[in-house]
């Protein structure tokens, strides 16, 4: 059993999934305790799902957002950040640190940024656990 922090990634099918696939294709490694669930758009992620992840034992949740590339339009950026702030409030109530939820725009070719974000997040979470 792994003792590394566990991260749940919500990623978008058309934009950030290809980047995460590309990271694998290019053999750019990141810890194996990172799991991805794909959704059509980052502004469709429910805060209750994120909270469920913490409840069930995930240390961190990473939202690989569409950013301005979202095929469903530009309002995605604002709506995704609304979801983050609502979730941050819920996390506060449960005694979770806001830094356990991270978001970054990951474009379809952003393999390097994805791996860098995940590795940094992993380091931060590991520090907190100690």
């Amino acid at each position: 059993m792994s003792t590394k922090p566990k991260i749940l990634v919500f990623s978008t099918e058309k934009i950030s999934d290809p980047a995460i696939d590309l990271a694998g294709l290019l053999k750019k490694h990141y810890p194996n305790t990172v799991y991805t669930i794909s959704v059509p758009c980052s502004s469709g992620i429910k805060p209750r799902w994120i909270m469920q992840a913490y409840e069930k034992g995930f240390d961190g949740v990473f939202i690989a957002a569409d950013g301005t590339d979202c095929p469903y339009g530009e309002s995605c950026v604002e709506k995704t950040s609304d979801i983050i702030s609502v979730t941050h409030q819920m996390m506060k109530d449960k005694g979770l640190k806001p830094s356990q939820l991270k978001m970054a725009a990951i474009c379809s070719v952003c393999a390097d940024p994805f791996v860098a974000h995940i590795n940094n997040f992993m380091k931060e979470l590991a520090k907190k656990d100690n």
Binding site: S2, I20, D21, L22, L25, K27, H29, N32
Partner: peptide, 21 residues
């Protein structure tokens, strides 16, 4: 279920971890 791009290739440095994932 994607166990190639997001698993066996991404974690080719860690076969035990890749199996676990």
């Amino acid at each position: 279920v994607n166990i190639r791009e997001q698993d066996s290739w991404a974690h080719s440095d860690n076969p035990a971890g890749a199996t676990e994932k």
